[in-house]
């Protein structure tokens, strides 16, 4: 019995807890991508840099607060910086729309043109970020590091294995939950949110009903900016901030959005967790876990790891491929292709 519990604790410690945190980050990112897709009808390759911009703002604000001696005690100061990051990122998103994307809306450009335009925005923002904060790794967590330490868990339960929950993981899950709940409440319960859905569903009919497209677009960018700032900051808080990683994270984010069904918000959330947990379960070394459950004679020799951790990123691609082959509209049937 204890053996099984020990095995479960190992699994929770290395897969479940990190997966929840990582899944939340991906879900927030994918939700942003899906919002832009469903209203503006293009895949926004600048979304990663938008997240990065949010994280950068949060870091700069955190430094400013720290230098003033302002903090949140056990919680990271970055939480206090988050509102600033959200506001700045929304501003960046709105400026980008005004200065760049709006023109293509007016000329009714094809979505592939948007794609390349978003590349330009990505390049520009990426440069701006590196110009401001440099290309190096930044750690900006402060306050208490753990909600629960492995050792105290062992003492508490008397088990051999420990379960550690980092503060950043806890904050990620809670914040993401609040954000997602807010977005869903907004989309389903408010008049403005419903008008966004209506516009995304049937543009012509929305116009006939007197829905103002520019307002819908503006609100979309506001939500997207907020989501990106939160997702970027949480990711940086959890894994340390490096401008380069926000380009690589685009792939799992797009994969999450597509797996769930592009344009479908629920799909984006589910997709985020599907990708996160598949990455972790497939790259997890089951050796230690199995030694608890299996009789000694059957104890595995190798690591029992399906794929080495370096190939995490390949997994989002594999899942993406499978979905594209079997059900191109995604699990929750997003926009048809």
């Amino acid at each position: 019995m204890t053996d099984i519990l020990n095995a479960l604790v190992i699994f929770a410690n290395f897969v479940l807890v990190p997966g929840l945190a990582y899944g939340s980050q991906l879900a927030l990112g994918a939700l942003g991508v899906t919002m832009v897709y469903s209203v503006l009808r293009f895949s926004n390759f600048a979304h990663g840099e938008l997240m990065s911009f949010g994280a950068m703002t949060a870091i700069l604000t955190t430094w400013a607060l720290q230098s003033q001696g302002i903090g949140l005690g056990p919680l990271p100061t970055a939480l206090l910086a988050l509102p600033v990051a959200i506001v700045v990122t929304i501003a960046v998103a709105l400026i980008a729309d005004r200065a760049v994307f709006k023109y293509y809306r007016k000329t009714r450009a094809e979505s592939v043109i948007y794609l390349i335009v978003s590349l330009g925005v990505m390049f520009f923002l990426g440069g701006l970020i590196r110009f401001i904060i440099g290309p190096n790794d930044r750690v900006f967590t402060d306050g208490q590091r753990f909600i629960m330490k492995a050792r105290s868990f062992k003492q508490m339960t008397g088990l051999n294995e420990g379960l550690a929950i980092k503060m950043s993981q806890g904050i990620t899950v809670v914040t993401a939950f609040i954000m997602v709940a807010f977005v869903f409440w907004f989309l389903n319960k408010t008049r403005t949110g419903k008008s966004m859905r209506a516009y995304s569903d049937n543009e012509d009919l929305a116009l006939l009903s007197g829905i103002n497209p520019e307002r819908v677009v503006m609100i979309t960018w506001i939500i997207t900016g907020a989501l990106a700032a939160v997702a970027g900051t949480l990711y940086g808080l959890d894994k340390s901030y490096k401008p380069f990683t926000y380009l690589s994270i685009l792939l799992p984010i797009f994969a999450s959005a597509i797996v769930g069904g592009v344009g479908n918000p629920i799909g984006a959330i589910v997709g985020g967790f599907v990708i996160a947990f598949s990455e972790l379960t497939v790259t997890f070394a089951y050796k230690k876990m199995l030694t608890y459950v299996l009789p000694e004679t059957l104890a595995p020799e190798g690591l029992v790891q399906a794929l080495s951790t370096e190939y995490k990123i390949a997994l989002s691609f594999v899942i993406l491929t499978i979905v594209l082959l079997i059900k191109p509209t995604g699990l929750f049937s997003g926009k048809t292709i």
């Binding site: 009919l205 007197g210 829905i211």
Partner: peptide, 22 residues
């Protein structure tokens, strides 16, 4: 309109609400 005259992903009630948007 003749075609595409409802918001297919929205509930009947929401369709009517959107009709009253202005």
């Amino acid at each position: 309109p003749q075609t595409a005259n409802v918001f297919t992903s929205m509930s009947v009630e929401e369709n009517l609400e959107m009709g009253a948007f202005i």
